[in-house]
Nucleic acid binder design. Structure first.
Lengths: 223, 223
DNA sequence: ATGATACTCGAACGCCTGTTCTGTGTCAAG
DNA sequence: CTTGACACAGAACAGGCGTTCGAGTATCAT
């Protein structure tokens, strides 16, 4: 009659509660109350639900706002309300124009792009991110189309193999390339192997504006 | 002394409440109570807050779960907890293999991709969406890299100018191309203008597996 | 003037809900 | 057998919170 949990950690009961919270949240757009959890997980006492909730919190699977009605939310992957990143859309990026990163930009982001946290690579969480919309076909060698949205992280330096957005003042050129530091300068390698790399000598100015974190293409019908 | 709202619609007070709800939600991960709204928007009576909340609901800017503590959420763009779409990742797509759409796939989606609703083009909301990861360089003419994730909508027919995923049984070829129906068959146009279209005669089999809705590329350092 | 409309206030009601306390049965360790 | 940790029940408490109602004020068209 008694469900005993020998090993510390998560048991069936915990999982059932977790699942219920997730499905309830999806359906009602807000978390369940302790009593609702009890009713749906065959727990007759609110104190027992509370008891399990505390354990789930200790395990880091749940966050609680004590005293606040329905003040709980699942963390991480269980979270049906996946965490969003609101990345400001700072303008456009095109071949002949320098990139304006947020700090030097006179624009305020009129719009923003929402990205699911879970899509973000390598814990580039939130800070210093901005988005630009590609204008024109000039990034075609980076496998990036007209209209694509690139998510950038504002950085000044890059490591080999990272795709960066650079401004070459002496050529009045903005480009997205894989970055490789070499002994006599820099090699900027297009993503598309059909294109040749740009070789930048050591004495030529090279402004790294950001690191490309993600590219998003929304398909619209075209002619 | 009195703030009069002549024209129906949204006034300063409404906007202030809306903003407060959004910022409170961002900070506390749950909506404010009526009384908290009152305190922060200089409204002394809960009934007045309720009064405004009702109006916001009528305007469609807010949803309310009456009777439920803090049962409100902003709709649409105001919503700081943007709605997520959980798209099942059904497997890979590569040149020589037919695409398995969810209904005919023996796999259950081990993983899924989260997409912000706001990113979804043209109200392709939710239904019949699935994701595939591109394997190999064969989609390079569609400006799609190895490793990219394509979001597809499961359809059998397409309209001109839509990018579709097709399986050509007689060529044992899977490809992503812009679709054009022509008088003597179909023209499958690569996104990259440097590549030539595939012409499919009317009598050749052509299996449209889905319509490409979105392409996502997560940049990882590469060599 | 007058009534209608929009807006505001304050207070009270009552349910909802998290918390807490007491108690019981099980099981393993000493 | 005793003890203590663990899992659970039930009840009561107190505060949070949405709701409702009566009443007051300002603006405007009639």
């Amino acid at each position: 009659m008694m469900m005993v949990r020998k090993s510390k950690g998560i048991g069936d009961r915990h999982r059932k509660i977790l699942d219920f919270i997730a499905s309830y949240q999806r359906e009602h757009k807000h978390p369940p109350s302790i009593r609702e959890i009890g009713e749906n997980c065959d727990i007759s006492s609110t104190s027992v639900v509370n008891y399990y909730l505390d354990q789930l919190e200790k395990e880091g699977l749940l966050e609680r706002d004590r005293k606040i009605s329905r003040g709980m939310r699942l963390t991480g992957d269980n979270n049906p309300l996946g965490d969003m990143l609101r990345v400001p859309l700072m303008g456009v990026i095109q071949a002949g124009e320098p990139i304006l990163v947020p700090s030097e930009s006179p624009f305020t982001p009129e719009d923003s792009v929402e990205i699911a946290m879970s899509l973000m690579p390598a814990r580039e969480k939130g800070k210093d991110l901005f988005a630009l919309q590609v204008q024109g076909d000039s990034m075609i060698d980076a496998m990036i189309n007209d209209g694509d949205i690139v998510i950038l992280k504002s950085v000044q330096d890059a490591r080999n193999g990272e795709m960066v957005a650079v401004w070459l003042p002496e050529r009045s050129e903005t480009t997205l390339k894989y970055y490789y530091k070499e002994k006599d300068g820099y090699r900027l390698q297009p993503a598309n192997p059909a294109f040749k790399p740009i070789l930048v000598k050591k004495n030529e100015a090279l402004d790294i504006k950001g690191k490309v974190v993600m590219v998003i293409r929304r398909m619209e019908r075209q002619n």
